[in-house]
Design a protein around this nucleic acid. Structure first.
Length: 347
DNA sequence: AATACGGGGAC
DNA sequence: GTCCCAGTATT
């Protein structure tokens, strides 16, 4: 048995029963694939059910509003996925008459669909012979074939796609792709892979040379910047001052609170002295929810304060608006803001 | 060729 | 803390 056949044999015995594996509906598969980008199966699962139930067909999805999609997406991260999904659903409804494309060449044109996702949808929905290369596949291939080319260099990406294409079982691409990924996720894991029970360990270059823990090779270049957010909460019996974010920054088009960003961590009293606070007139801190919350993103560390003020501002800044307290839970907010607001108004 | 883009889980 | 997750779009 060759490499692919052995992984498929392993897969058929050990695969998880995942809902998107029981269909060839390209729309449902697209839904699952976008949700699962950079996301663990367990984390994405509830979102998959949520979206599949709310939007059973791409026609239903196309009729949604961006606010609603982002609210459903809230908490999952990488929100451009949600925004792109809506654009793609609308395009598929109009240009493809609501029939989701299944060929790689059509899929790759869609917003939010890259090489991996186009290969996944085309192989799973129509058995097109396209090899997927995701994080799992990089790991499995780099170890089995002992390839130490960095997986995140352009050269490395090309190389691994080529290897993946070479080993692809062209007769049963869907099964092959599922097997590769499941094997990487369940057995050939990043830490403590289960080499002891691995069906292909005798031919695995990394296993033979005791190099499991040094593969795959990944260049790390990421720079993390610190940012300091001072969120202002101002409300009365039924109204809260909210903000709708623009694009060009994190959390595009989502809702949060009036924000004063500073280039260092300030004490609450010092925040009040800032020039941009003059629009609040003479205001006081009703409550200092002292404590700074640290919220970590891929490229940023956010240090967040929430200050509760006692007076609405005299002027509204761009993006600010008054929201009814009963409507708050319908607004898509970043996780950290949502948690705070949810606790204050306890919904 | 680099960098931005979330949030969570495993170790 | 560090790494990584069924990656993609933009610069």
């Amino acid at each position: 048995m060759d490499f692919s056949a052995q992984l498929i044999a392993w897969y058929q015995q050990h695969k998880r029963d995942l809902p998107w594996r029981n269909t060839t509906d390209a729309y449902i598969i697209w839904l699952s694939e976008i949700i699962l980008q950079q996301t663990r199966v367990e984390q994405g699962m509830p979102y998959f059910y949520r979206f599949a139930e709310r939007y059973p067909t791409v026609t239903d999805f196309a009729a949604a509003s961006e606010d609603e999609v982002l609210r459903l997406w809230q908490g999952l991260g990488y929100y451009s996925r949600g925004r792109n999904m809506l654009k793609t659903a609308q395009l598929v409804q109009e240009e493809y008459d609501g029939k989701f494309p299944t060929t790689y060449n059509e899929l790759i044109k869609l917003k939010g669909v890259g090489e991996y996702t186009a290969a996944a949808i085309s192989s799973f929905s129509a058995n097109e012979a396209r090899a997927v290369v995701d994080g799992n596949v990089y790991r499995v291939l780099s170890r089995y074939f002992g390839v130490d080319e960095p997986i995140n260099s352009p050269k490395g990406k090309k190389l691994f796609q080529q290897i993946a294409d070479d080993v692809l079982d062209k007769q049963r691409p869907a099964l092959h792709n599922q097997a590769m990924m499941e094997f990487g996720a369940m057995l050939c894991k990043p830490k403590n892979p289960a080499c002891g029970i691995c069906p292909v360990k005798l031919h695995c270059e990394a296993f033979k040379h005791n190099a499991i823990n040094s593969l795959p090779v990944k260049l790390k270049t990421i720079k993390i910047k610190k940012r300091f957010f001072n969120y202002l909460l101002i409300f009365d019996d039924k109204t809260v001052l909210m903000n709708k974010r623009g694009d060009g920054d994190i959390w595009a088009n989502m809702y949060d609170l009036p924000l004063v960003e500073t280039n260092a961590l300030l004490e609450p009293m010092d925040v009040l002295q800032l020039p941009e606070m003059t629009k609040f007139g003479k205001t006081n801190i009703l409550k200092d929810n002292s404590g700074v919350i640290k919220h970590v993103l891929t490229h940023q560390q956010l240090f967040i304060r929430f200050l509760i003020l006692d007076k609405f501002p005299e002027k509204l800044q761009d993006g600010w608006f008054y929201a009814n307290i009963d409507d708050l839970e319908k607004l898509a907010m970043p996780k950290c803001v949502f948690i705070f607001i949810k606790n204050i108004f306890n919904f």
